[in-house]
């Protein structure tokens, strides 16, 4: 087992070394599991959904890592897979009408209030309610910039969207959220 933390490039090389695939993959999971989990969790909200999406993401990563070309940074490639899995899961849930995240009258806030794995204060709850009103992609952009503090160039790689569009989208999202918070904070 390797003690020192390997770079992403070294991890990919180790993964492509015969007989060391599992070892490398465990190191990748260990390095990125929390970041990817929180990224997914802020999109899908519930822990169970985040757990499903995270596991699916890692399975996809396992299946496709050997063909990873290194054209982008490993972490942006991982984020792209995790984002797609999270959004796919949301779409599936919308299809079966469990809830609609874009619906003005959705039970988003109520679901979060009763979620045993959410213990945020009132302000955090309101923030999540405001974020929940954003369209899916805008919500992802907002999360990646606001919570994860990624650079626009990194988000651009993850979402395959131009930096200009991302800046506009983030500004628009932040404006909507700020307005919602102003209107809903006592």
């Amino acid at each position: 087992m390797i003690d020192q933390e390997l770079s992403d490039l070294e991890l990919v090389e180790l993964f492509n070394t015969k007989g060391r695939q599992q070892e490398a993959f465990r190191l990748i999971m260990s390095k990125y599991k929390e970041r990817l989990y929180w990224h997914i969790r802020k999109i899908v909200l519930s822990h169970d959904d985040a757990d499903d999406a995270l596991q699916n993401s890692f399975i996809k990563i396992w299946q496709n890592l050997s063909s990873f070309q290194g054209n982008s940074a490993l972490f942006t490639w991982l984020y792209r897979i995790a984002t797609n899995e999270a959004l796919t899961l949301l779409k599936k849930k919308k299809r079966v009408n469990l809830y609609s995240i874009n619906d003005e009258d959705n039970s988003y806030g109520e679901n979060l209030k009763s979620d045993p794995y959410f213990d945020g204060n009132d302000l955090q709850l309101k923030l999540q309610q405001a974020i929940g009103k954003l369209p899916d992609k805008q919500r992802v952009i907002f999360n990646l910039k606001y919570f994860e503090e990624l650079k626009y160039s990194e988000i651009s790689e993850i979402l395959d969207t131009s930096v200009g569009s991302l800046k506009a989208s983030y500004h628009h999202a932040a404006k909507k959220i700020e307005s919602f918070l102003k209107a809903n904070i006592e």
């Binding site: 919570f147 932040a174 959220i177």
Partner: peptide, 21 residues
Amino acid sequence: EDFKILGDIKKQNNSAGFKVP
């Protein structure tokens, strides 16, 4: 300045109130 509230609540907690088992 436009996003004062967002600035105030930013990073109260990185998990934004979420927790895990």
